[in-house]
């Protein structure tokens, strides 16, 4: 379950961004995940529900965009779709290919609520009620 450690690292990253922008909460996190990243999006979403507790992302929704696997052949130059365990060229079958998409593990964007003003230093952020 390395997805949980990845989520904890993600939370540190997005909380830092939220603080930097003086946001009150993170409402959405958008990721791009390729199958060759070694991360399962479903497990990541489950882990996120655990890791976000008590953080600025407590109510955030996670959206994951799946990246397709594509390779470019170094021999014939053809760009083609490939399978996770079959990454040779679809046209000439050569094994010298470059992966051009499919191993992404990226934070694409965060949606923040509020921002632009500083909370008082003694203010408890989790208790802020929206009036």
């Amino acid at each position: 379950m390395h997805e949980l450690s990845i989520c904890q690292s993600l939370i540190r990253q997005i909380e830092a961004l939220a603080r930097q922008h003086r946001a009150q909460a993170i409402t959405r996190v958008t990721l791009q995940i390729g199958p060759l990243s070694g991360v399962a999006p479903e497990l990541l979403e489950q882990a996120f529900r655990v890791a976000r507790k008590g953080t600025l992302a407590e109510t955030a929704r996670m959206v994951t965009w799946r990246a397709p696997i594509r390779v470019r052949c170094e021999q014939c130059g053809k760009e083609s779709a490939a399978m996770i365990n079959h990454l040779t060229c679809a046209r000439c079958g050569d094994g010298h290919t470059q992966l051009i998409s499919g191993n992404e593990m990226q934070l694409v964007s965060v949606e923040l609520l509020g921002g632009g003003h500083t909370l008082p230093s003694n203010g408890n952020q989790e208790d802020t009620a929206y009036v």
Partner: peptide, 11 residues
């Protein structure tokens, strides 16, 4: 709400 583009590796 506003959206920030990040494009950072998760790790």
């Amino acid at each position: 709400q506003h959206t920030l583009s990040v494009l950072n590796h998760l790790l």
